[in-house]
């Protein structure tokens, strides 16, 4: 019988050798993106249409994204979603390649503020298009209307001792420093001067002491918010989290604080390690269609670049994310803060 099995294995081997002919037509498109950007049903339509296979990998922080793309010189992925601020270091490191605008005809469907490259800072470099805007969100505050009767109008509400142990904040190094900087009243939250650091660290330690917890994923934040009776949520994923909480039955409001809400605009970019650039561009073009756009808005509460956003509570301005003065330092210090270190140790070299 073992011989029979041997023959069967041999047969399988021969069959599998015949298969790559069919498979090569659909080389896998390796997508690195955020939760909600490439749902299985959206991916399936693209796979059926192009006969390709799409491998989606999800990340939940800018740091993780940078790590995954830069670690092997962008060889592991073909296309990824990144915000315009983060995009700059990818361009500078040569990790992304220009996109052929003609290959993305659906850009014509985008609202003028997104289709006009000059209107979106950071997606053009030396006259070449490096990214196509996909979705955006401002990081407003979500609050529980039952616990907070009056909508908080400042970012400093996160530090309000009344909400001690009832605040949820995103576990992200770079822009938590921007948040602290905003709360401290600095004019340029993305550029910390050397003398600003101790105060920023202190501010973040104070934040740590006031929060219930730090979250990374939208689902996780909604679950914590509802089950632990949180009152205030810094919505790193913006309206996506609002939607999740509404679906979960929470009576929540969404507000843009007066300091202005940090806002990110996520774009699709193509890596220098791309195996099939045409397929990567087809992917970007496909996601600008109405179908994927509806999934984005209806299912995840995310805004699209092709339709006007639904109006949200709050009247503060948006502060578009910009590259920060030293990402590594912000992350290193943040990791110490989130691990529970005190200021002296956080600021240690």
């Amino acid at each position: 019988m073992s011989r029979l099995r041997h023959h069967l294995q041999l047969l399988c081997l021969l069959l599998s050798m015949a298969l790559p002919v069919a498979a090569s037509a659909g080389d896998a498109l390796r997508v690195l993106t955020w939760p909600g950007y490439a749902d299985a049903d959206v991916v399936k339509v693209f796979e059926q249409r192009t006969g390709s296979r799409v491998e989606v990998t999800l990340i939940d922080s800018d740091e993780a994204l940078w790590q995954r793309i830069s670690s092997r010189d962008a060889a592991d992925f073909d296309v990824f979603a990144v915000n315009t601020a983060e995009l700059q270091r990818y361009i500078e490191s040569g990790l992304v390649v220009p996109i052929d605008s003609a290959a993305i005809p659906n850009r014509a469907l985008q609202l003028p503020q997104f289709s006009d490259p000059d209107a979106v800072p950071g997606i053009m470099r030396d006259g070449k298009l490096f990214a196509v805007p996909y979705t955006y969100a401002e990081m407003g505050l979500i609050y529980d209307r039952k616990q907070i009767s009056e909508a908080p109008d400042s970012i400093t509400a996160l530090w309000d001792p009344r909400y001690q142990g009832k605040v949820l904040v995103y576990n992200g190094g770079s822009h938590n420093f921007s948040l602290a900087s905003q709360a401290l009243g600095h004019p340029t939250p993305f550029q910390l001067r050397e003398e600003d650091w101790p105060a920023a660290v202190d501010k973040l330690i104070a934040l740590r002491r006031n929060v219930l917890s730090f979250y990374t994923q939208p689902d996780e934040s909604a679950e914590l918010f509802v089950s632990r009776g949180a009152a205030l949520l810094f919505a790193n994923y913006g309206s996506q989290q609002l939607k999740l909480l509404q679906v979960a039955g929470a009576d929540v409001g969404y507000v843009i604080p007066r300091e202005g809400a940090l806002a990110w605009l996520d774009c699709w970019a193509v890596t220098r390690g791309v195996k099939n650039k045409t397929l990567a561009e087809a992917w970007i073009n496909y996601l600008l269609e109405q179908g994927p756009g509806e999934v984005l808005t209806a299912r995840h509460g995310l805004a699209t670049t092709t339709s006007q956003p639904s109006h949200q509570e709050g009247s503060g301005r948006l502060v578009w994310l910009e590259p920060v003065e030293n990402t590594e330092r912000r992350i290193r210090l943040w990791e110490r803060i989130v691990s529970g270190d005190r200021a002296s140790r956080v600021l240690a070299p």
């Binding site: 142990g165 330690i205 740590r208 929060v211 730090f214 989130v338 529970g340 270190d341 005190r342």
Partner: peptide
């Protein structure tokens, strides 16, 4: 001493 950390924001503490 200084190496001791604050862990109040971890669920194993607050839960």
């Amino acid at each position: 001493g200084d190496e001791l950390q604050e862990k109040g924001h971890y669920s194993y503490v607050f839960d």
